[in-house]
Simulated assay, not measured.
Amino acid sequence: MSNPVYARVRQNPKFHELVKKRSRLALGLSAIVLVSYYTFMMVVAFAPQVLRAPLSEESALSVGFPVGAAIIVVSWLLTGVYSHFANGEFETLNDEITRETLQ
C-alpha cells in the first residue's frame, strides 16, 4: 500500500520539476568529472610521455602533476556548484512541495 502523502508528492508538478532539474545537473556534473578523469587515465595508459614531460627545462615537476591537481580541484569546484543549487533553488522547490503537500 502506498502512503497518501507520498502519492501527493509524486503528483505535484513541482516535484517533477525538482527531479528533472536535479537529475540534469547531477548528470552534467558527473559527466564532466568522469570525462576529465578517464581522459587523464587514457593519456596515462596510451601517451605517458605527454604527462612525464617536464614543465620547463629546469623543472623537476612533470606536466602530469598540475594536470592531475587540476582534475581534483575541478571536482571540488563542481561539488561546490552542486551544493550551491542544492541549498538554493532545489531547497526552495523542496520547501514549496512540502508546504503544498502538508496543507
Score class of each variant (00 low, 15 high):
residue 19 V to L: 12
residue 20 K to M: 14
residue 21 K to Y: 02
residue 21 K to R: 13
residue 23 S to D: 07
residue 24 R to N: 08
residue 24 R to Y: 08
residue 27 L to A: 15
residue 28 G to P: 01
residue 28 G to S: 15
residue 28 G to M: 12
residue 29 L to P: 01
residue 29 L to Q: 09
residue 29 L to A: 06
residue 29 L to I: 14
residue 29 L to Y: 03
residue 29 L to V: 09
residue 30 S to Y: 09
residue 31 A to D: 10
residue 31 A to R: 10
residue 32 I to A: 14
residue 33 V to I: 15
residue 33 V to K: 15
residue 33 V to Q: 15
residue 35 V to L: 15
residue 35 V to D: 09
residue 36 S to K: 11
residue 37 Y to R: 10
residue 37 Y to W: 14
residue 37 Y to E: 15
residue 38 Y to F: 15
residue 38 Y to K: 11
residue 38 Y to T: 14
residue 40 F to N: 03
residue 41 M to C: 12
residue 41 M to T: 03
residue 43 V to K: 04
residue 44 V to G: 00
residue 45 A to F: 07
residue 45 A to C: 07
residue 46 F to Q: 12
residue 47 A to D: 06
residue 47 A to I: 07
residue 48 P to E: 12
residue 50 V to S: 03
residue 51 L to I: 08
residue 51 L to M: 07
residue 52 R to N: 12
residue 53 A to I: 01
residue 53 A to C: 03
residue 54 P to G: 05
residue 54 P to I: 11
residue 54 P to V: 12
residue 54 P to A: 08
residue 55 L to D: 03
residue 55 L to H: 04
residue 57 E to Q: 13
residue 58 E to I: 15
residue 58 E to H: 08
residue 58 E to C: 07
residue 60 A to E: 13
residue 60 A to R: 14
residue 61 L to P: 00
residue 62 S to Y: 05
residue 63 V to G: 01
residue 63 V to N: 02
residue 64 G to W: 02
residue 64 G to M: 04
residue 65 F to D: 03
residue 67 V to L: 12
residue 68 G to F: 12
residue 68 G to Y: 11
residue 69 A to C: 08
residue 73 V to K: 07
residue 73 V to D: 01
residue 73 V to M: 10
residue 74 V to E: 04
residue 75 S to D: 03
residue 79 T to N: 13
residue 79 T to A: 14
residue 79 T to K: 12
residue 81 V to H: 11
residue 81 V to D: 06
residue 82 Y to W: 09
residue 83 S to I: 10
residue 83 S to W: 09
residue 83 S to F: 09
residue 84 H to M: 14
residue 85 F to S: 00
residue 86 A to R: 04
residue 87 N to S: 14
residue 87 N to W: 09
residue 88 G to I: 01
residue 88 G to H: 06
residue 88 G to N: 05
residue 88 G to V: 03
residue 88 G to K: 09
residue 89 E to D: 05
residue 89 E to S: 04
residue 90 F to E: 01
residue 91 E to L: 14
residue 91 E to V: 00
residue 92 T to H: 04
residue 93 L to P: 03
residue 93 L to F: 02
residue 93 L to Q: 02
residue 94 N to Q: 14
residue 94 N to D: 01
residue 96 E to L: 04
residue 96 E to F: 01
residue 99 R to N: 00
residue 99 R to S: 06
residue 100 E to P: 00
residue 101 T to F: 02
residue 102 L to Y: 05
residue 102 L to W: 02
residue 103 Q to A: 06
